[in-house]
Design a protein around this nucleic acid. Structure first.
Length: 742
RNA sequence: GCGCGGUUAGCUCAGUUGGUAGAGCAUCCGGCUUACAUCCGGAAGGUCGCAGGUUCGAGCCCUGCACCGCGCACCA
């Protein structure tokens, strides 16, 4: 009889020991993998934000990726899975500032840039080490020797290099534009970081003054002190006579010069069919202003207060107060004709929750429509040496099937996003993040102005990987959108910008990418953009988008509901294998799922079942003399044939990333075929008088157990590795590098 | 407004190319049977949202509708 196993499986005892054995083996690093490995399989871990600890959503993501990675490693491929952490500029900046305000009653401006950044760095260091531990406990077979951080030196060099190349190609430019300003976070945010919240609003219909001929309607009367035109539809009969005319009016104590313009974008049906155009505080109006050459008057500042330009009645007031003031003024002057309750969406910054104010500002942008010549490209449909755009690269990479997005429905969202995409605002007024690698030569007194505000000329602007030589250069104050550095992740982790880096040559494009669908635009699209521009290739071949995890009742996990679950508590109670299975079985690609500990419990029981199957087999096979030479009886060889067929089916599922099906099938086979039928029916054989029957059964059981462990290993790596180590098989290696059965 | 997803057993969800409905949990009955009571044997439970259509045959394909959820756009 073989080595005796304890009666019940104890995950806690086994898991740490096994992970250490894996890590000590060096096999997480593809350079150390045994055998000849020609096919490459590489994956970049979506780096978790350095904002704290991991939650169950991460467990889901890592369970899935580890299963994929382990499968390919067992298939004999050269497998690299790169770990890392995201500095998550805006999220971390916001989080640490919140803590600062709570604990010390100060914001980042109170303690200054240097002190604040130091605080963030300390916070990040602590988060990172916590998360590394957590990831190990899930069993993720990551190559820790290649661990990266989106804000370490090599990645910073990558960011500077990328910026410089895009700047030189004219794809990054500085422009005075209407941007999304977050008064709470005191920074701009990109269009994708703005969320729309439905709210009840008021639509006010009024005239600027008694002598103005047209009534307009607005939900934001306070912005109307910044109007420079009234727009109507060119075909609107009511207003034909006014088109092209100018009017001087006095509105709420502010003198306005209003031009009547005709623009196709106006809906004659809405309100009065006439729109007051506020170029400084609406992106749409700004576009109209550009078409009609209208001046721009900024009446709201960065603190969401009215500027001096807003006129004496409201100057200095908060936006909300100003609205009341203006409405009262309209009432007092008999100019308000209608008040209608209406549904509106207010724009909110997704990190801080601040109400977005569109403001004109000098910011850095990535131009998505500008043509450039691509020197070298392996993207189908974008030939080397031709002219293309970033939008075109993003579109073609997916359109031609080089990148496959799963589930397929997400492709539609992707294309829709590209079609509506505007230039990407990449500069932030945050302090934690990659600094914009641009310097300005200041030749005059700055006074209270920053170099950026001073609006230095182009000749006095330098963009470079390193700071320029000489006196008087001041670096741009802004930091970059966190997604700018994340967008480089698949190759910045492989040695780029050194284009001869061995890892880059071997492992890029990567094979598989597994983020949540909520970052399709933020991240997936931007990676395709950057990889396309900087390397002329796709960043990954398959994107498998997973869904969100909610609590058992279907609610989002959130601080306010206090329904968070620490994955480590679950692991301590049920084991990592059980948690992993519960995260994979039955959750189709891109589908949200509810987390229920009952499901985890069920797979803990399954683990115990597997354990006892092994116990039974080991009790019944000879310890030293493996029966691998025994002839199978007819009956047993049928079972082996069925196993082979089953294996092929599983392999097919694995190759097509149907892990949610594969795992369930294996579960079913192991429990309800192997244990319930095969083992039960083997019992008489094992006590058979016929030595041939007995030997066949022994060999058959060992064979099925071995194959089952292999099939199950990607999903439940710990218990399978532990059992495998006890099997009486010659020339064993670690199960993680054993050959996938055929 | 445009688009997407969901609606299957009491609950949470699977169902890969159309072929007599599956899992876990919960329920009921009976069992310590050469591993496992974290278990075994058995049972009950479904007009697969509604209405049409295609087909020899539809949970799966087509049309329409309803409800729930999501993305994007508009929001003067």
């Amino acid at each position: 009889m073989a080595e005796e196993l304890s009666k019940a499986y104890n995950a806690a005892e086994v898991e740490n020991k096994i992970y250490k054995r894996w890590e000590d083996s060096g096999f997480f690093n593809p350079d150390n993998l045994p055998g000849e490995r020609t096919r490459v399989f590489s994956v970049a871990l979506p780096p978790p934000n350095a904002t704290g600890t991991l939650h169950l959503g991460h467990a889901l993501e890592y369970s899935l990726q580890d299963a994929v990675v382990r499968y390919h490693r067992m298939k004999g491929e050269k497998v690299l899975w790169v770990p890392g952490t995201d500095h998550a500029a805006i999220a971390t900046n916001t989080k640490v500032e919140k803590i600062l305000i709570k604990e010390e009653g100060k914001n980042r401006h109170d303690i200054g840039r240097e002190a604040f950044v130091k605080k963030v760095e300390d916070f990040v260091a602590a988060s990172r080490s916590t998360m590394q531990k957590q990831i190990r406990q899930i069993g993720a077979s990551l190559d820790w020797s290649r661990e990266a951080f989106t804000f370490d030196e090599p990645r910073n060099l990558g960011v500077r290099t990328a910026f410089k190349r895009m700047y030189d190609a004219g794809l990054i430019y500085r422009g005075f534009r209407i941007i999304n300003w977050d008064p709470k976070g005191q920074t701009t945010v990109s269009d994708d970081e703005v969320q729309h919240k439905p709210e009840k609003g008021m639509l006010y219909t009024f005239k600027y003054s008694a002598d103005f001929p047209i009534e307009i309607a607005t939900t934001r009367p306070e912005t109307k002190v910044g109007d420079t035109a009234v727009a109507v539809h060119p075909d609107d009969k009511r207003y034909q006579q006014y088109i092209g005319k100018d009017f001087n009016v006095e509105f709420a104590g502010k003198k306005l010069h209003i031009k009547i313009i005709a623009d196709d974008s106006i809906d004659s049906e809405f309100g009065t069919g006439a729109v007051g155009v506020t170029p400084a505080h609406s992106i749409i109006d700004a576009e109209m202003a550009q078409r009609h050459n209208l001046p721009m008057v900024q009446v709201i500042n960065e603190y969401a207060r009215m500027t001096d330009q807003a006129g004496p009645l409201v100057a200095g007031q908060k936006v909300k107060e100003a609205r009341e003031t203006i409405v009262k003024w309209l009432n007092d002057n008999n100019l308000l004709t209608k008040k209608d309750s209406i549904d509106i969406n207010i724009s909110v910054a997704d990190r801080s929750g601040g109400i977005i104010e569109p403001l004109p500002k000098l910011q850095w942008f990535v131009s998505v429509n500008k043509e450039f010549s691509i020197k070298q490209s392996s993207i189908n449909g974008v030939a080397s040496g031709t002219t293309t755009t970033l939008k075109d690269i993003m579109r073609k990479s997916v359109e031609n099937g080089q990148i496959k997005i799963m589930p397929e429905r997400e492709e539609k969202k992707y294309f829709n996003w590209i079609n509506n995409l505007r230039d990407w605002n990449i500069s932030r007024q945050l302090w934690y993040g990659h600094r914009v690698p641009v310097w300005y030569l200041i030749t005059h007194e700055l006074g209270s102005l920053s170099a950026q505000q001073a609006g230095v000329s182009e000749e006095n602007t330098y963009c470079g990987i390193e700071a320029p030589k000489g006196e008087g250069w001041v670096q741009d104050e802004d930091t970059l959108d966190t997604w700018f550095s994340s967008a480089l992740w698949t190759f910045s982790t492989l040695g780029w910008p050194d284009k001869n880096a061995p890892d880059l040559k071997t492992y890029h494009p990567t094979s598989f990418m597994n983020p949540g669908y909520e970052i399709l635009f933020f991240w997936v699209a931007r990676m395709i953009l950057m990889s396309g521009f900087l390397l002329g290739e796709i960043p990954f071949k398959t994107v498998y988008l997973h869904g969100m995890l909610r609590d058992a009742k279907g609610h989002k996990f959130s601080k306010s509901l206090d329904n968070g679950v620490n994955p480590l508590d679950i692991i301590n109670q049920y084991g990592a294998d059980a948690l992993r299975m519960s995260m994979i079985v039955g959750i189709g690609p891109g589908n949200d799922a509810n987390f229920d500990t009952n499901k985890v419990k069920a797979y803990k029981h399954f683990g115990n079942k597997v354990w006892n199957i092994a116990r039974f087999v080991l009790m019944n096979v000879p310890e030293t003399e493996p029966s691998d030479k025994a002839e199978f009886t007819k009956e047993d060889s049928v079972l082996i044939d069925e196993l082979k067929k089953f294996t092929e089916e599983i392999t097919g599922d694995m190759d097509n990333y149907r892990l949610y099906l594969a795992s369930e099938k294996i579960y079913h086979y192991v429990w309800h075929t192997f244990a319930d039928k095969i083992i039960e029916e083997s019992k008489p054989k094992l006590v058979s008088e016929s030595l041939a029957v007995k030997a066949s059964a022994q060999r058959m059981l060992l064979e099925i157990l071995t194959v089952s462990l292999k099939l199950l290993h990607p999903f439940m790596p710990f218990i399978t590795e532990e059992i495998y180590s006890k099997l009486p098989i010659p020339d064993k290696q670690l199960l993680m590098v054993e050959k996938w059965p055929e």
